[in-house]
């Protein structure tokens, strides 16, 4: 009799564990905290500030998702990951989503079994060299020593670029951006290559940024975006539409400043649907009606996040370029909220 009880309990526990593993959204709600994978530190995108609070463009996406799901933008556990550890962390369930300037590629989407929910930064791989070297093109880099972050697409692009141009190089594989910075500044490598946005962010932290130049060549397409595990479509939808909500908000002119006013109802039905005063979009996602409002209030809309963290008025000083709204000639485009 007793044995039966024990086995029964074990079975129930097993089933419960199985059910819990199935829904990331329920897991996050039950935990009351979102586990979000970010970089180990790239100023502007994700880096802890002096008080240990994570801040940045990618961090903003994490906070928006936490706000949408849990109503609290601070309910995030940031898990720093390196280029090497990020996919294992996501695949194993250690993190619920990864917002770590990760390039959307075919094999990562299909073979590695991840789901890219969208693109929050259109980037490309560039090269940074000290100005004193007098190099003006990446094709002049024959024989150079190049620092690369290992486990990234840049590693593969680099091999292809030098091979295609029939020039040689000496790769120095590095784990994190901080180590790359140390080696580059000490002159242990001539060139540092990674996504152009990352180079700009890294250069902004140098003592003398003007002593370093970014070469004109952009040798690859690097659409960076948040991703989740393959197979949990419900959770994928939540992250995808939170990102879209931030993008739509900018397009519709909803900002963190005027959102309180707009949330009480406007003449624009799409804004009303987005902010939950009309329709049941939140309910369809399994979230509260004001999910998008919370997400936007967390750090502002897409444009606000961009300007605050990496925009032209920050030390990183990235122009919107490809990352402008489609209405301004950029590629940032959200499907309609309908």
């Amino acid at each position: 009799m007793k044995k039966t009880v024990i086995f029964g309990a074990l079975t129930v526990a097993g089933l419960a564990a199985g059910a819990a593993a199935a829904g990331t959204l329920d897991d996050v709600k039950a935990r009351g905290k979102l586990n979000c994978g970010v970089t180990t530190g790239l100023v502007g995108f994700a880096a802890p500030d002096a008080n240990g609070n994570w801040d940045g463009f990618d961090v903003g996406v994490c906070r928006a998702v936490a706000a949408a799901v849990l109503g609290d933008p601070t309910a995030v556990e940031f898990v720093p990951t390196t280029g090497k550890t990020r996919f294992t962390a996501l695949a194993s369930g250690e993190i619920d989503m990864l917002a770590r300037n990760t390039t959307w590629t075919f094999s990562r989407d299909v073979d590695l079994k991840f789901e890219f929910v969208g693109v929050n930064y259109y980037d490309g791989q560039g090269f940074m060299v000290p100005a004193e070297l007098g190099v003006s093109s990446a094709k002049e880099l024959d024989g150079a020593t190049v620092c690369i972050q290992t486990g990234t697409t840049t590693e593969l692009n680099l091999a292809d670029f030098f091979r295609a141009n029939n020039i040689s190089y000496e790769p120095v594989p590095i784990e994190t951006n901080a180590e790359a910075q140390q080696q580059y500044l000490a002159g242990a490598c001539d060139v540092y290559t990674t996504d152009a946005s990352g180079l700009a962010a890294t250069r902004a932290t140098f003592e003398n940024p003007s002593a370093h130049v970014l070469l004109p060549e952009i040798i690859s397409k690097e659409p960076l975006g948040p991703l989740v595990r393959h197979g949990d479509n419900n959770w994928g939808d939540v992250v995808r539409w939170t990102l879209n909500a931030l993008i739509s908000a900018e397009e519709l002119g909803v900002t963190s400043a005027n959102i309180g006013e707009m949330a009480s109802g406007t003449n624009n039905p799409e804004i009303n649907r987005l902010l939950g005063t009309e329709g049941t979009l939140g309910e369809m996602l399994g979230l509260s009606a004001d999910w998008a409002k919370n997400a936007i209030m967390a750090g502002g809309n897409y444009g606000e996040l961009f300007e605050k963290n990496i925009g032209e008025n920050t030390p990183i000083g990235l122009a919107r370029g490809l990352n402008a709204q489609w209405t301004d000639g950029g590629l940032i485009y959200s499907p309609p909220f309908r």
Binding site: D111, T150, G151
Partner: peptide, 19 residues
Amino acid sequence: VGYMDITGTLGGITMNQTG
């Protein structure tokens, strides 16, 4: 230190790129 031993190649880049 970025020395490409077997943990760096097979257990590092290869594992990461192939999943």
